[in-house]
Simulated scan of single mutants.
Amino acid sequence: MTADNTLNVLVNGMTCAHCVASVTEEISAIAGIDGVQVDLNPGGASHVTIRSASPIDAASVRAAVEEAGYALAGTPS
């Protein structure tokens, strides 16, 4: 199955591989998510790319990031 929808977000506060794992786990738990890729930027906003075959709900992504203990930087695109 090909992921046709992509959502890019910036996440503040991630500093290590454990942070990446926590955010990836929470976002991956959202129904329909096919993949999560994190470009860690310790000390700054980390770029997270989320892929899904169906439309991605930005509010669910925000909630998942917050559940992992982090915050989005700006509005998802």
Rank of each mutant, 00 (worst) to 15 (best):
V65W: 07
A68I: 09
G44N: 14
Y70G: 09
V36H: 05
L7R: 11
E26H: 11
I50E: 12
L40Q: 06
A31Q: 14
I27P: 01
S46T: 02
I56N: 09
R62M: 06
T6I: 14
I50M: 10
A45L: 05
T2N: 12
L7C: 12
L72K: 07
A45W: 02
A68F: 06
V11F: 06
L72M: 12
A64F: 03
V20C: 03
S46F: 03
M1E: 09
Q37V: 12
D39M: 05
L72Q: 10
V36C: 04
A31H: 06
R62P: 00
S54P: 00
A45N: 10
A21D: 11
A63R: 11
A63K: 13
G44K: 11
A73L: 06
M1P: 03
A17P: 00
D34V: 00
H47T: 14
R51A: 13
S46R: 05
A71W: 01
I56S: 08
V48Q: 05
S60T: 03
S22P: 00
A73N: 10
T15I: 07
S60Q: 15
A63Q: 13
T49Y: 00
V36R: 04
V48Y: 03
V61I: 12
C16N: 10
I30K: 06
Q37C: 00
L7Q: 13
V38C: 04
A71N: 13
P55E: 15
A68R: 07
D57Y: 01
T75W: 04
G69F: 04
